[in-house]
Design a protein around this nucleic acid. Sequence first.
DNA 1: ACAAATTATGGAAACGTTTACAAGAATTAT
DNA 2: ATAATTCTTGTAAACGTTTCCATAATTTGT
Lengths: 355, 355
Amino acid sequence: MKDEGKKPCTIRDIAREAGVGISTVSRAINDDPRIKAETKERVLSIVRERNFVPNMSARNLQARQTNNIGILVRGIENSFFQSMYKGFETELGRRGYTPVLHAVEEDEAIVDEALTLEREKRLKGIIFLGGKIEDPDIPFQKLVVPFVLCTVAQDLKAPLKGISTVSVDDEGESRSAVNYLIEKGHERIAVIAGKEDDQAVGAQRLKGYRGALSENGIEYDEALVSYMPKESTEFTYESGYLAAKRLLEKREKHYFSALFCISDSVAFGAYRAITETGLNVPSDISVMGFDGLPIGKYMTPSLTTMVQPVSDMVRSAAELLLDEIEDKKCVKNLFYDAQLIERESVKALKQKKRR
Amino acid sequence: MKDEGKKPCTIRDIAREAGVGISTVSRAINDDPRIKAETKERVLSIVRERNFVPNMSARNLQARQTNNIGILVRGIENSFFQSMYKGFETELGRRGYTPVLHAVEEDEAIVDEALTLEREKRLKGIIFLGGKIEDPDIPFQKLVVPFVLCTVAQDLKAPLKGISTVSVDDEGESRSAVNYLIEKGHERIAVIAGKEDDQAVGAQRLKGYRGALSENGIEYDEALVSYMPKESTEFTYESGYLAAKRLLEKREKHYFSALFCISDSVAFGAYRAITETGLNVPSDISVMGFDGLPIGKYMTPSLTTMVQPVSDMVRSAAELLLDEIEDKKCVKNLFYDAQLIERESVKALKQKKRR
DNA sequence: ACAAATTATGGAAACGTTTACAAGAATTAT
DNA sequence: ATAATTCTTGTAAACGTTTCCATAATTTGT
């Protein structure tokens, strides 16, 4: 496997061989209109023959930027994000860009990371997945390339100024989810939330939970919310399992008939905890998820959940970003509706309410 | 969010400001030993102050290569692969390289794809995940950069010459899996295989299945193997579901008490098919998987499976490749043992055999 | 103290493209 | 025919690094 010393050929080699100038070759491969069709063909045929591929580094250097779009993911082990990459690849690829995946640690300063990447790799744009927004305005201003936030909780009352986002209304959709549970007759509804200091998705979805309760005149009981330990990775089967476990231990005192999980992964963990306790989903405890991971359909019982329109979101995020890059179109905040999918994990109690 | 026109500063700017030559700056940031410690500090402080980040494209152009390692994945939606990316990022990063993820269509010519990437991006090496090897020698010879095949079935009798690989012995470990089922008293064992023309993982694992049967004097019954339709994406919940369905339909005539699934994802699909038929896992049908996806532990019932040591494999693949790149060490074929994890999805029948 | 060896620095060329500019060839208008 | 356009092409200068080579500064040896 040693390097054969076969230097890949350059635009210059092609030029010599074709007996033309180097700029002619350049024009040929970029199909610049101002070049005779005949010459172009001759050059191109040599290009094919020699199997020439232009050197990206050189191109990028000269162009002073790349065609790379950074995809920065906080919490990349989250299956929800994993399902998105392929989509970005095709969407961006369709318009000539290449995604560059980059995992960011849960608690890292995602913007600084982005900043370095932006300069080092001359990214043309950035898509953030799962970014947290502690401080509503400070960090993102530093970025000079366009970017869009995707899948990030959004406090509608204070939309982030000048920032493009694509997301579902986490709060609203959570409210719907819990409302659904209530419609099904549940009143004692526990919740597995994110970390206690979570400012993003977790917080929004928890807010939705509280909203639904108060909307229906159900008292909020702190004993029924299980936060994830600070050190844990969010949205993980195991953390869901642990969190559910804690709820289950004190269920004698603090009864609940339904459990709203902040994400599907967490719900799967909860399933196990419940089963281990000798209880059954849904006859003893109804479980509701959020995200719509494909596997949910195959769990026993299959998971009732709010599904996020992943591929639409991906497409929009890509389009939004690319438009901003190319046409300098203005920023937008896009919201998608999640869709309630009724499956087997929620049981109706006495039909308490109905509209 | 318009471009501020703030040109990121170059090595030249730093040089001017520090009152030194441009090569001095270069040496400072690459900590070249032949430079006075004092000068170095001065330069470096300006670098920090100005927040200078060297331009990758320029570096790569000059170096005539990048520090990028292509990770080419065939079938990127497969959860098994998804779990590997983070590992590559840290392993490669530890030694100064950057992974570049690239999804390849199931049926695409993965090597040609690689070839283009190799030239265009000047990759320093390539790791293939899930590559199929139809023709034992032709395609890979074209590659000039080092590469390693990971997770690819391996026919031990004809090891690929001159190619580094990291894998589990798919055939052998499948045999163990099926042997386990047999030890538990099962004789009528169905199997969900890959596509019928699968030459890679699928074929090897199926071979293991047949091996185990014949080893134990159990007759191979073609009616008990369910291939996946040619057009389907392999290793998908849905394809598993469909395949199981077909088996179940003719179970009257072709009875089986256990089902060996070529992968965990497929097993999850099978779960659903079985449940829908009104049957129960494991009391009616025992199910065995292969891969060891984390979610398996949380399914009901939890899935008995052969777990592949993913993180070890990732680490080795990275090390193997990097060693080859840096020290020109020789190629190796590495095999890892999978580990049988007994969980709830397999029930013992009459204890037929034991050693 | 002076030559020789060593060490630290700067200048310039190269890496493989794109592109502004100039020049040559072909076309059209007069 | 000749001047004025328009097309086509080639040359050279960037882009931001690294690195070879030469030179300047320092240290060492005598």
